[in-house]
Design a protein around this nucleic acid. Sequence first.
DNA 1: TAGTATTCGGAGCAACGCTCCGTTTTGTCA
DNA 2: TGACAAAACGGAGCGTTGCTCCGAATACTA
Lengths: 198, 198
Amino acid sequence: MATDNPAGESPSRGKRADAQRNRQTVLTAAAEVFVSSGVDAPIRQIAAQAGVGMATIYRHFPTRADLVTAVYRHQIEACVEAGPNLLAGADSPLDALRQWIDLFVDFLVTKHGLADALQSDNDRFAALHAYFLDRLLPVCAQLLDAAVEAGDISPGTQPYELMRGIGNLCIGHDNDPRYDPRRLIALLLQGLQRPHAS
Amino acid sequence: MATDNPAGESPSRGKRADAQRNRQTVLTAAAEVFVSSGVDAPIRQIAAQAGVGMATIYRHFPTRADLVTAVYRHQIEACVEAGPNLLAGADSPLDALRQWIDLFVDFLVTKHGLADALQSDNDRFAALHAYFLDRLLPVCAQLLDAAVEAGDISPGTQPYELMRGIGNLCIGHDNDPRYDPRRLIALLLQGLQRPHAS
DNA sequence: TAGTATTCGGAGCAACGCTCCGTTTTGTCA
DNA sequence: TGACAAAACGGAGCGTTGCTCCGAATACTA
């Protein structure tokens, strides 16, 4: 029951049958290529994998961000919906926040170069950034507010800044056992915690 | 009295006069272009600015990282040398660490896209990453160790991870008043601090 | 001054993003 | 079913960038 068509992705209803078929083919091919070559893979490569011309991809997904968005939409929405659930089920709002961030980090970390793309100042991905913010920022804000309200963390931290920080920390962890974003994010959350005023 | 020629930069001594002259011209031009267009600027643009052929740039600085390194070498070395000085002069090792990180962040934040390039998984900048690590990691490690020794922060944090985290947090702050890496880095340091065991 | 090693410059190739337009496919209506 | 128009397709093609190659120009040496 998520918002309909939150991103600029072209609708598929009412289109010709071959168009709908191709849309799905491209989506599947893109998902495969993203895994093997990252979200920065050449459009030509995705087109080849899909057995389709490049123009077909551009027609269905005008910008690269639209394609990436469409591929990962389900997982993003899952993250959105997990927020309130965690808040209801966790021991404390802080715990809910922690678990939600874990979820988000897991999502980012398992997609080659997604975090990189998200924060890239390259405006090719501006729409992707915007989509993530649109969907996830309210959730993060809600969790953060709840944790502040409960006195678990001190106020003053902006959800936007926190999300970007987490996204940034997830950049470039690939093939580097010396760098685990989770440890630093744990540290960050530690710093966020209000010293227990008993 | 820093290490001589720590990066793969081509030496200028013993070369022909025009070569040395061109080397300097390119360096100056690159510095200007980096400011206006970021460290990702096309080599053609730098060559044009310098009034020189592209091959000349590649001859003096085989990889882009070599050029960036050469342009910023002085500032990096200044950062290296500031470490011990801060440690000697600050109120506490933790304070020295904080001030040193401030210095490092200031450096990163004032260079368009430098932080981005540093952590890019694009191997075009691998040598740049390596150079930063070579020079700065020991300094960071020394400050970190001192702070642990003094009991200011809890042990267990790896200098490498900390440096990468800081670098990552500096990514993409440009033209976004909502995102100030310094606030998050302060939070991170807060999380690093050992709760005062009195 | 002549000779040679060094350096220079930009043409050229490959890879990529994105568009344009002739061709093919699909849905519709008589 | 058999046209016919609208929709969709595919890839050639243009612009940009990274990087190399090689004939031309330049600086040192004897």
